[in-house]
Computed example of a mutant assay.
Amino acid sequence: MDGGAQFTLHDEEGGGTMLALSGPLLVSTIGKLERELSRLGHEVGRVDLSDVEEMDTVGAWVVCRFATHQSAAITGTTPSAKRLLEAVEAASSDVEITPDRTPVWERVPLALGEKVYAARSGVYGVVGFFGQILIGFGSLLRHPSTFPLKATVRQMEMVGVAALPIIGLMSFLIGIVIAQQGAVQLAQFGAETLTVNLVGRITLRELGVLMTAIMVAGRSGSAFAAQIGTMKLTEEVDAMRTIGISPIERLVIPRILACTFMMVVLGFYASIVGIVGGAVVGHLSLGIPFFTFLERIQEVVPLHDVWVGLVKAPVFGLIVALAGCYHGMQVKGNSEQVGIRTTMAVVSAIFAVIVLDAFFAVFFTEIGWG
């Protein structure tokens, strides 16, 4: 152990044993000494550092751990070594400080107030994000040649065309359920034929568009947040800004246009498929011929019900796209944020869609389209 840290044992007056360390106690020299001290079988009452040439943090930690384990005193330290040992001992202490827990009647209002205050910054962020989108639209209107047509068409395919099977299946089953349950209830009054009215109006006016918006939020809104969020983590968004490409114009606006336009198509498609599902139940369970059911729909459903659904569809699409893109652009830090923001995008979009649907219900009733 030439040139390295070493130790010797000495018997002291009174029957105790002293451990004398010598040489440099550094991270590069203390490895063998640390292993030998861990195997030492003697009880040591004092650790003497008079012959120690140098000592770093690792050496001080080994000395402190050994002295604590042996309940031994440390002597022969220089002023600098003493300060280092005291710092290491303080840092490695196992004292656990537990703050007093405030009562629940104080914690709950405090947490609620913090969330309300944090919501203010969220509102500012959404308003600012919407302003960036308006500026991006203005830039594209001034320079139509820069419009991302291919990206928009691609997003329309992903949001609309690829969603046709699942939206169709969902709407068909909803139409079946509405017709079957409505017929059971109306049969108590001998008014099974009014099932046509029920299916037609509730599908075209409410459920066709609403369920489609919820499905698009879960399917496309989450995809928007995950895609843009991943691009933020991999610094692709920063790279776009560096080379002079606006992320709003290339990533956000194509998704907003695609979702807004395709929601109209998907909402109308879902309403038609839902009516077909109701017609199937009418033909099989109520004895109403399939085409008679469809002809009856044209007689009992006012045209303004169709317009109600068509007016709500683009608004719902805009909300879903805004929620997905906004939360995607807020991702930062680590990959966990992608999952958190994706969940927030879906939840906030569905919540906003349902709130707006309630507003539209009251509004259209007030203007006589109830």
Rank of each mutant, 00 (worst) to 15 (best):
M18K: 15
V44Q: 03
A191P: 02
A162P: 00
A90Q: 12
F360H: 06
F268K: 01
A20V: 14
L85N: 02
G122E: 12
G368C: 10
V58T: 14
V347L: 07
V116Q: 09
H42V: 10
G128Y: 03
L25Y: 07
L286M: 09
T77A: 13
Y117M: 13
I288D: 05
D305M: 07
V347M: 04
G175M: 08
D357G: 05
R39N: 12
R46V: 15
L186C: 06
Q6T: 14
T77D: 03
R39V: 08
E96V: 14
S22C: 04
G14A: 11
L37P: 07
L134N: 09
M344G: 11
G200Q: 01
T292S: 13
S93Q: 12
G274A: 15
L19S: 04
S139V: 06
N334P: 00
N334F: 02
E192D: 10
L19T: 07
R250N: 13
D56E: 09
G45T: 14
V116I: 14
P144W: 08
M263K: 01
H283K: 12
G136F: 03
L110C: 00
A20Q: 12
S121M: 07
M262F: 09
G267H: 04
C64A: 13
V161R: 03
I367P: 01
Y269A: 11
I228G: 00
Y269I: 05
G282Y: 02
G160T: 05
V237Y: 09
E235Q: 15
L186I: 03
L164P: 00
E192I: 12
I133Q: 02
L37K: 06
Q337V: 02
A345D: 06
A90G: 12
E36M: 12
R255L: 03
F137L: 15
R341T: 02
V308I: 15
A151M: 13
V177P: 01
A223P: 02
V331A: 05
L233N: 09
A191L: 12
A20D: 07
T68I: 00
A321G: 05
R39E: 14
V44I: 15
D48H: 08
M240D: 06
R83F: 00
T242W: 03
L140G: 03
V126H: 05
T365F: 10
V280G: 05
V159S: 03
G131V: 04
L173Y: 07
L186N: 08
T234E: 02
V63K: 05
I243K: 10
V252E: 01
P289Y: 02
A258P: 06
